[in-house]
């Protein structure tokens, strides 16, 4: 199955439709207010300049929200009711950078009588570097 198809991704090799977005500083500031995370590494240019990143970075949970959006679109009834994920944040996203989620079903397991899709997930920059990588698990019976 290729991106853009409408069948629920439930077999190995099935690809989820990516979410593509350019993260802006305005978005970071809106997220800080909405999520209640006002860590200055995201908001204060003077503070951020003194960190190893050298400038402000987007919240990891803001970038991870794109993955959750992708999974919600692929599994509208199951992601928020039985889905789980495990990810590592591998690098920062700087405001102004474009990022894209990815997701591909790598196997389908039987768990307590349910078919559960294991999905390689993540977020990647335009230069090909991964900023988030991990796995998601979503029950696919009944989708």
């Amino acid at each position: 199955m290729t991106a853009g198809a409408r069948r629920t991704p439930s077999e190995p090799g099935d690809v989820l439709i990516p979410v593509v977005r350019t993260i802006t500083q305005a978005q970071v500031e809106a997220y800080a207010d909405a999520a209640g995370d006002h860590n200055p590494i995201h908001l204060d240019p003077d503070f951020a300049e003194k960190t190893p990143f050298g400038r402000r970075i987007a919240h990891g949970m803001l970038t991870l929200a794109m993955v959750s959006e992708m999974l919600t679109s692929a599994y509208p009834d199951r992601w928020a009711a039985g889905g789980r994920l495990k990810v590592r944040f591998r690098g920062p996203v700087f405001p102004g950078e474009a990022v894209e989620t990815f997701g591909e079903v790598t196997r389908v397991n039987d768990s307590d009588g349910l078919r559960v899709a294991e999905i390689a997930i993540g977020v990647r920059k335009e230069d090909g570097s991964d900023v988030i990588t991990g796995q998601a698990y979503v029950p696919v019976d009944g989708e």
Binding site: N39, I41, G60, M61, W79, R84, L85, V87, F89
Partner: peptide, 10 residues
Amino acid sequence: VVHASQEVSF
């Protein structure tokens, strides 16, 4: 503060 990894179950 750096967020290194995250696990979630819904």
